[in-house]
């Protein structure tokens, strides 16, 4: 497809379609605490212990996390579902020398939910800049769930040009801008120019500009004057 699927056609069935990913500063410890006393805890503990001892076992436990840990929103940790949190904990359990290769592999062979979980976990892992290619891969897609997850705190490793294009792509594909970490801090005059040009095209086409993008453009241009 050369053109985004217009989100206006019909809202996706799954709530994850227009993800309310608030960029957050969660920690691995907080994610772990959220499972305290939960029915999935025994499975999770076993899988985490297995990954620490036999890192290769993560291929299966990572794929099964939705079925074993459930997919409901995680109590006490806004923006995280149980499967995403379980997957982050599995990644965090990897021995340090296996973290990068296994993370790249899990993303490469992941379905959409697994890819999204990897992207969301990145800022919580001691992985440096090794996973930047995963962000670039996610930003190449037209999948709103992946675009949103790629613009969390780990996107600080994206250079400014790639970051601006990513923000504009969110606007273009209908991903809410509250998914973008440090939006106002990073937004610059060049992004304002790109948004203004986009607004002009939309106006010419008689189509509305998303409200959050319009608001951002207003904030950026009022600062200038």
């Amino acid at each position: 497809m050369n053109r985004p699927v217009e989100p206006s056609v019909k809202p996706p069935m799954r709530s994850s379609g227009t993800p309310p990913v608030q960029a957050s500063d969660e920690s691995i410890e907080r994610l772990r605490d959220a499972f305290q006393g939960a029915p999935q805890e025994a499975w999770l503990d076993g899988a985490v212990e297995a990954v620490a001892g036999r890192p290769g076992s993560i291929a299966r436990s990572f794929a099964a996390a939705g079925r074993r840990a459930g997919r409901a929103p995680l109590a006490g940790v806004p923006g995280w579902s149980a499967d995403e949190a379980a997957r982050a904990l599995l990644l965090a359990a990897l021995p340090h020398d296996r973290l990068t290769p296994e993370t790249l592999d899990l993303y490469r062979y992941g379905d959409a939910d697994e890819k999204r979980a990897v992207l969301k976990a990145l800022p919580l892992l001691p992985i440096g800049t090794a996973a930047v290619p995963l962000l670039l891969d996610a930003l190449r897609t037209n999948d709103a769930r992946l675009l949103a997850a790629a613009l969390g705190p780990y996107a600080r490793h994206l250079d400014q040009a790639a970051w601006r294009q990513a923000v504009l792509k969110c606007v273009f594909t209908g991903v809410p801008l509250n998914a973008v970490d440090r939006l106002d801090e990073r937004a610059d005059a060049e992004l304002a120019a790109m948004l203004a040009a986009f607004a002009e095209e939309r106006e010419a086409a008689g189509r509305p500009m998303p409200q959050d993008a319009e608001a951002l453009l207003r904030r950026l241009t009022s600062e200038e004057t």
């Binding site: 497809m1 056609v9 069935m13 379609g17 062979y109 379905d111």
Partner: peptide, 22 residues
């Protein structure tokens, strides 16, 4: 094959969901 499998588990279900098809 793996790119195709990825599509069957990634993009295609996403595309279907836009139309209310599981």
């Amino acid at each position: 094959f793996t790119d195709y499998f990825d599509s069957l588990l990634g993009w295609e279900p996403y595309r279907a969901a836009q139309f209310g098809v599981v």
